[in-house]
């Protein structure tokens, strides 16, 4: 027991509860599988639907873990993904830079966007949620303006990645990348100073500043790390989908709502399992659940989102069960 405690951070949490959760997850999935008459857990369905559809929400959730870590609830992430992914596609296709353009651009764009939100929140002192919404409008608008300009010149408004550039979005590459990102995220979150400091700030801001953790510095570094992770998610997303059209009026919120639910589930379980692991489990669960609903005939974009909303509400209530302060 001592040996595992030193080697892996997450078994500092009760091992028994972790096994319980894993069993619960497996049981729920098996139940859903049985209800669908054995259709859900076919190799084809798993590799074509469940796992690939878990990639984007889970990776974005990991990014949210870092960005929301100090309390900055930034919902412009959806718009950032659209902007970053499309700029990557533009550089890949229109500028002929291929994979180089596709991979480098989203990281840079999304990091800049996130730093802009952090600037509004930290230095202009705009409340985090308003900063996120306002910047979200701006990021969306930039994409819309570009789309509107392009549709006048190039005929088509949306840029599509050529098939030869979409290997990152296909099985098994996308899932392998997700696993690699998982390992990196896990190590950063549990085994680096920035991860430890972030958890400390989230757990007890008073003690953290008393031991000398610089909140602002940690917040900025965490936001950059989170933005890089979201950048990876953007690349994976456009590789899978081929194109992502611009949105307006903060419709981009819907694109990250699943990720938000995954993040919230992971947060409410964080006394049982480490958040990166929780997010992975929650991502797979949510994807399985929605796959189950689709097989059962419930259309995407309808009741599935209603269930998501209910999940977020339940998590929101659970998170505040022991909270004694003023809630607004």
């Amino acid at each position: 027991m001592t040996k595992t405690a030193t080697k892996q951070g997450f078994t500092s949490k009760p091992l028994f509860k972790q096994i319980l959760l894993l069993v619960l997850l497996i049981v729920l999935i098996v139940i859903m599988h049985l209800i669908t008459g054995g259709k859900m857990l076919s190799m084809k369905n798993i590799t074509k639907n469940i796992l690939p559809q878990a990639v984007f929400p889970t990776v974005v959730a990991w990014g949210m873990m870092f960005i929301f870590g100090t309390g900055l609830v930034d919902l412009s992430i959806g718009a950032q993904v659209i902007l970053g992914a499309n700029i990557g596609a533009i550089l890949a296709m229109d500028a002929g830079l291929g994979y180089v353009g596709l991979i480098i651009a989203p990281f840079i764009v999304i990091v800049i966007c996130e730093l802009m939100v952090v600037f509004c929140s930290e230095f202009l002192k705009i409340p985090g949620w308003i900063a996120g919404l306002g910047c979200g409008l701006i990021f969306e608008a930039i994409m819309v303006m570009w789309t509107q300009a392009r549709s006048k010149t190039a005929g088509s408004a949306v840029i599509t990645l050529g098939d030869d550039l979409r290997v990152l979005g296909r099985w098994p590459v996308n899932v392998i990348i997700m696993v690699v990102i998982f390992v990196i995220v896990y190590l950063i979150y549990n085994r680096t100073s920035i991860g430890i400091n972030l958890k400390a700030i989230g757990g007890d801001p008073g003690v953290s500043s008393a031991v000398g953790i610089n909140r602002r510095k940690a917040l900025i570094i965490a936001a950059i790390i989170g933005a890089v992770i979201v950048g990876a998610a953007a690349i994976l997303n456009i590789s899978k989908a081929g194109s992502i059209s611009a949105s307006s009026g903060l419709a981009s919120l819907s694109t990250i709502f699943k990720a938000l639910a995954v993040t919230l589930i992971a947060m409410s379980l964080n006394s049982w399992i480490s958040e990166p692991v929780g997010a992975l489990g929650a991502g797979i669960f949510v994807s399985s659940l929605f796959n189950f609903l689709t097989i059962m005939g419930v259309q995407a974009g309808t009741l599935q989102e209603v269930i998501l909303g209910a999940v977020v509400i339940i998590c929101g209530v659970l998170a505040r069960l022991n909270y004694k302060g003023v809630a607004k």
Partner: peptide
């Protein structure tokens, strides 16, 4: 009024800020 950071393990708490 200070104390420890609840969600972290004891050893990390001891060296928090100096990790």
């Amino acid at each position: 009024e200070l104390g420890v950071v609840g969600p972290l393990d004891p050893v990390t708490n001891m060296f928090l800020g100096r990790t």
